[in-house]
């Protein structure tokens, strides 16, 4: 009850956990600060030079007491550490299976959001209440940081690397979105709004093609990816039995044998690399003839292509990019069961 009054702003599944730890740390801090300051004040008054108090038997060391303090503080520290490690590992770890994946691209100085169904938003993010959402973030240029204070959630947006974070919005409203990592001249204007809506309203918003946002309804990410796939002529080599390049059906999350003798799991990060720098990732039996797309595709288009390639897999694997280097589905359910 008290906690609800103190921390009325918690707007995500993570926020109450943050609040708990913040509350405990604040209690500890106040306790120790008051302890130290009051001891100093008491000693300063009692033992001021003019005072005639008894100063007999001054002590200059007490090893037992010191070790007691060291032990006590270490235990307190370890306790807080373990308590605070779990929520952290949770939100940066594998999301529940039903999590909605939303792609966030940071660039100087705006946020580009892609919903899987093709709705794109700039500097705005609409979310349904109560549904787990996993953000998959990548930067087009420098390091940014996706920060929604009301959710107490922050994740750096790094170029060349997918990061992820997941949470459940638990409160309807409009919340500020900041870039928290200094990214250049207009860093302080790389802001936006996150809107959390009732699932019903969200469905309406989605159906209207995100009419409240600037982007409007485009094709879904898979469709956009397919269009790119055709536009760049990928199909001429990766089409069925051309022999020039491997087929992409059922590629996602499969094992790829490369000409240099190593193997790789074809996760999001691998596919991204294979599109942008194909010469380093040549599968066995093929020539390194694929064009380098590094300067032709932006991160958003790469995400579209990955979505399309995923759609070519017969079994859909609910795997998040950030954790896809390892396996496997099924365990996600457990995570969900325990944390939610």
């Amino acid at each position: 009850m008290l906690k609800n009054h103190l921390f009325a702003n918690a707007a995500s599944s993570f926020a109450p956990k943050f609040d708990e730890i913040f509350f405990v740390l604040t209690a500890l801090s106040v306790f120790f600060t008051v302890l130290v300051l009051s001891l100093i004040v008491i000693f300063a008054i009692r033992y001021r030079a003019a005072s005639t108090i008894d100063r007999g038997k001054p002590i200059t060391h007490n090893t037992k007491l010191e070790f007691t303090i060291i032990g006590f503080l270490s235990v307190v520290g370890l306790g807080v550490f373990f308590w605070s490690a779990k929520p952290y590992a949770t939100i940066y770890g594998a999301p529940p299976a039903n999590a909605q994946k939303i792609y966030v691209i940071g660039k100087q100085w705006m946020w580009e959001i892609q919903h899987p169904d093709g709705i794109r938003e700039n500097d705005a993010l609409h979310l349904p209440l109560g549904r787990p959402v996993q953000l998959i973030l990548i930067s087009q240029d420098v390091v940014h940081s996706f920060f929604v204070p009301a959710f107490k959630v922050k994740r750096d947006v790094v170029p060349g690397m997918y990061t992820s974070v997941w949470f459940v919005p638990t409160k309807i409203g409009k919340f500020r979105l900041f870039c928290a990592q200094y990214c250049g001249a207009f860093h302080s204007q790389m802001t936006g709004w996150v809107t959390v809506m009732k699932p019903k309203d969200f469905a309406a918003w989605e159906a209207a093609g995100g009419s409240f946002s600037e982007g409007g309804h485009e094709t879904s990410m898979v469709q956009a990816g397919k269009a790119l796939f055709n536009k760049y002529g990928c199909v001429s080599c990766h089409g069925v039995s051309t022999g020039m390049a491997p087929s992409l059906s059922n590629l996602y999350m499969s094992k790829v044998h490369l000409t240099n003798g190593s193997t790789a799991i074809a996760d999001d990060a691998y596919i991204r690399e294979a599109i942008l720098n194909p010469t380093v990732h040549v599968p066995v039996g093929y020539q390194p003839i694929m064009p380098v797309f590094k300067d032709q595709l932006n991160e958003g288009q790469v995400l579209d292509l990955i979505a399309y390639i995923k759609s070519l897999s017969s079994t859909s694997l609910p795997q998040s990019p950030a954790n896809s280097a390892s396996n496997r589905s099924g365990t996600d359910e457990k995570v969900k069961g325990k944390t939610r």
Binding site: A85, K86, A89, T90, Y92, G93, A94, N323, A325, S326, N327, T331, K334, V335, K338
Partner: peptide, 10 residues
């Protein structure tokens, strides 16, 4: 340790 998945149940 980047590729490792976080401990289940955490």
């Amino acid at each position: 340790s980047r590729g490792w998945i976080p401990v289940k149940g955490w």
